[in-house]
Amino acid sequence: MNHSNENEDLSLIREALEGNRDSFGALVDKYKDALFNFVYKLMYNRDDAMDVCQDTYLKAYTHLKEFKVEYKFSTWLYTIAINTSRNKLKRRKFAFFSIDKPVQNDDEEITAEPADTAETTEQALLKKEKNELLSEIIRSLSPDYRIPFLLKHEENRSLEEIAGITGLSTGVVKIRIHRARNILFKKFKERV
């Protein structure tokens, strides 16, 4: 993200603090797709992703005064989103009402692309298989590993950025990513 982009965020934040809701709307617009994609991959559930993203922006808005110029707005947003997701994931695990109910996979969302007439059944099947594999991979990781792992591979972020978002040191981030891959590799070896 370049410098003028960050400056733009700062002026939008300033305007939002002055009471201009449209400026905050512009900030929502700017990051909503990236954020939604990330949170969706993290939760693998559309409703949860929607809740988390809405809550994230609500929290960002109500705490906007606490935003510091040293941060990048997008980093700050991701930090809020991650904490919100983490709590939700934790709660889901101990959910009272859905204790035996498997978490629903939400394949529909991820495969709902514009109809590609050229796509063969075989291709569609392959795509479905890939999605299932992906969701299985993500679910095999606890949030501690899942979050840095996805920031790295889904978002292609540097160790420094991941450290900034998660509040971990770069050393710990690196170890978590390595371990996440090991956990997955072990799982894979058990299968084959």
């Binding site: 909503k32 939604f36 991959k41 609500l58 992906l134 996805l150 591979h153």
Partner: peptide, 18 residues
Amino acid sequence: LISDSPKVSAPAGFTTRV
């Protein structure tokens, strides 16, 4: 597998809802 997975967009009307 992860980096090639299709990107999911926020649902329509998301900003208005927020």
